[in-house]
């Protein structure tokens, strides 16, 4: 289910223990062919795809790439990318350096414009000039390799900024949510610390809380643990695993294959701007079909 935890935060005065109950009530039975009212993607029947619903995610398409091509000058960085990500699905993207992984996810909130093709996010086409890009970005949380916290603001201010300025929440309400999120990511005592006073792992957890505070429908992660010391990686991954369990739609660029095995519904392998291979974690790791995938997996799994 989508964002139980985050949703529960927004239900005023509800103690955190209630979140599961609330989630139970809004559970969307897999055999109901439409999304309930108020659900992300509700009313977008054209985006309901056929076929059996895999346990754990919805048959609503949240993100569609259709024949997407992108160039940086003469470099062709995305080649004929076709991709569908459904609500609640966790997709891990891996591949060698320079293969276009970051570019792929940065296209989803249009941090990068594309050259050809179409991207549809939550029913809205990014190439349509009438799409309200700021409103769409507010629905998409993004976590970067280098954290990118605002250095002149405390952790709490980092988290409350967008809810207050974009969602127009009152400061008290935004702070209440921010404190719950900080507790959720395990650092409630760091609310008044500035980013430079936090460790890498703590900064990244604040960055995740900042993204979650907007109650996003989609979370994008670009190598969220690559800049961290080994002992801090697991504290960040734990938060992400929790989020995945709660049904968040996630696209995660990472080489943490343990994480991928544990939570990914699908793993995508990219090389030279192409999606070379994709599959569920079992088949992907057990018998990769492509030679390039095999040699890549050998490289990263061996040591």
């Amino acid at each position: 289910m989508l964002g139980y935890f985050v949703n529960s935060l927004f239900q005023a005065q509800q103690p955190a223990e209630c979140s599961l109950l609330v989630a139970e009530q809004v559970r969307f039975p897999p055999d109901v062919p439409f999304a309930p009212k108020g659900f992300p993607g509700a009313g977008l029947l054209d985006f309901v795809v056929d076929g059996p619903t895999k346990q754990g995610y919805q048959d609503i398409v949240m993100i569609t790439f259709r024949q997407v091509n992108k160039w940086f000058g003469a470099t062709h960085v995305l080649r004929d990318v076709d991709l569908k990500v459904r609500a609640g699905e966790v997709v891990v993207v891996c591949g060698p350096s320079g293969s276009g992984k970051s570019t792929l996810i940065r296209c989803i909130n249009k941090l990068e414009p594309i050259g050809q093709g179409e991207i549809i996010v939550d029913g809205r086409s990014l190439s349509n000039p009438t799409t309200d890009l700021t409103a769409l970005r507010a629905e998409i949380g993004m976590v970067f390799q280098q954290f990118n916290l605002y250095p002149h603001m405390t952790a709490l201010q980092n988290i409350t900024l967008a809810p207050v300025k974009v969602r127009k929440l009152s400061r008290e309400e935004a702070e209440r949510i921010a404190r719950k999120l900080l507790a959720k990511v395990g650092i409630p005592e760091k609310a008044d610390h500035y980013p430079a006073q936090l460790s890498g792992g703590q900064q990244q957890r604040v960055a995740i809380a900042r993204a979650l505070a907007m109650q996003p429908k989609i979370m994008l992660f670009d190598e969220p643990t690559s800049a961290l010391d080994p002992e801090m990686i697991s504290e960040v991954l734990d938060v992400m695993v929790e989020l995945a369990k709660e049904g968040m739609t996630m696209i995660v660029v990472t080489h943490e294959m343990g994480f991928a095995k544990k939570v990914a519904h699908r793993i995508i392998f990219m090389d030279e701007g192409r999606i070379v291979e994709e599959g569920g974690p079992e088949e992907f790791f057990a018998n990769p079909k492509e030679e390039r995938t095999r040699s890549f997996l050998n490289k990263i799994l061996v040591h």
Binding site: A138, E139, N148, A162, V166, A207, R210
Partner: peptide
Amino acid sequence: VPKTLFEASVATGLSVGQAYRLILIPI
């Protein structure tokens, strides 16, 4: 100011003007 801070702020839904006013210019 690193360009990535601008990206991080518009990615949360701030407008370009807000990103300048609240993040880039104060830093």
